[in-house]
Simulated assay, not measured.
Amino acid sequence: MLEELAHVGTRLRSVRKSRGWTLDDLADRSGVSASTLSRLESGKRQASLELLIPITRQLGIKVDDLIAQDTPDPRVRRPVIRRDGVLIVPLSPESSAVHTYKITFPPDGELPELRTHEGSEWIYVLSGRLRLRLGDQDLILTRGEAAEYDTRIPHAASAAGNRPAQVISIFNDEGARMHVRLSAHQD
Rank of each mutant, 00 (worst) to 15 (best):
A160W: 15
T151W: 02
L66S: 02
E110R: 07
R75K: 10
A146Y: 11
Y101F: 14
Q186A: 10
R75T: 15
I55K: 00
P106Y: 10
R77T: 13
R133S: 12
S183M: 08
A27C: 06
V98E: 13
G144C: 07
T104P: 09
I170F: 09
D70W: 10
P54G: 01
S183Q: 12
V180Q: 13
I123Q: 04
R131F: 14
H99E: 07
A27R: 00
G85A: 09
N172G: 15
E41D: 10
R11V: 06
L40P: 01
D150L: 08
A160Y: 15
V86I: 14
V98C: 11
E41I: 01
N172M: 05
G43N: 04
L59D: 01
D28M: 05
A146E: 09
M178V: 12
E148A: 15
S120I: 10
Q69V: 13
I81G: 02
H7I: 13
L134N: 06
V76S: 13
R78N: 13
R115H: 12
L114Y: 00
K17G: 09
W122R: 05
T36E: 00
I103A: 07
G109T: 08
E113M: 06
E121P: 02
L130Q: 11
I168Q: 03
P154F: 06
G9Q: 02
T10R: 09
A47Q: 04
D73S: 08
I53V: 15
Q46P: 03
P112E: 00
R143N: 08
I55D: 00
Y149I: 05
D173A: 15
P164C: 08
T56N: 00
P154M: 00
Q58D: 08
V8F: 07
G9L: 02
Y124E: 12
A184S: 14
